[in-house]
Design a protein around this nucleic acid. Structure first.
Lengths: 110, 110
DNA sequence: AAGACTTTTTCTGTAAAATAGAAAAAGTCT
DNA sequence: AGACTTTTTCTATTTTACAGAAAAAGTCTT
């Protein structure tokens, strides 16, 4: 299983977090909350589509109900392969940060 | 401060971990230990140079002492800007993984 | 001292991902 | 019908990932 990028990790996690509200534009907002940075449209849609293509996300067309305007949205959800790669990613991050305490301390105090 | 990639994060951390043994080829080995994957030569040198260029790493030429063969090596060390970006990265990762317990549980059990 | 040997670094080309934003699409509202 | 709202599609550019051959800079052998 080949590792995912940080952007991909973030998007998967935001879909997890948003659950029934995991629409692209909501995800974009959530990413901004977490990173403090507003991603461009392409910066969201391009990797989301890639994640679908890789089988880590599923997509569902949602019909516009009478209570909102604009083009119909697509809702995302994480597949079990997606959960699995997230777990792997988490373990890898943990391994990466397995450093001597003295080093961790130095980072904390910067 | 613009975020770094996962590869950059990993390399910075491996330099931290290896301390006085932070030579490119040692770093490569360490990366393999953590990820389970052997990176190509370019996969190590290219981003290391980039990190130097960005000011997150420093480089020092080490003269070959009589007890080893081969071309002289370059030793890397993390700058204070490097420590700082690592800290930011760590905080961002923490924010990303701030999910409902039910979701974290689902990931754990996959 | 010349040439074989060892190990690291330099270099460069290709593929993939990040980034950006204009234009199109698909609805609702007046 | 046409204006309006919001999302998605599309595509071009820059940056990063990935790969490995060739060059470099030493030591060792004879």
């Amino acid at each position: 299983m080949t590792p995912i990028t940080r952007t991909e990790e973030m998007l998967l996690l935001m879909v997890c977090k948003l659950q029934d509200e995991a629409y692209a534009m909501q995800i974009r907002e959530e990413v901004q909350k977490v990173t403090g940075k507003l991603y461009s449209i392409g910066g969201i849609y391009v990797p989301l589509d890639r994640l679908v293509h890789k089988g880590y996300l599923e997509m569902q067309d949602i019909e516009t109900s009478a209570d909102r305007m604009g083009r119909p949205r697509r809702k995302f959800s994480v597949t079990s392969a997606g959960l699995s790669i997230l777990k792997e990613t988490q373990l890898m991050e943990k391994a990466m940060w397995d450093l001597p305490k003295s080093v961790l301390e130095k980072i904390k105090l910067v």
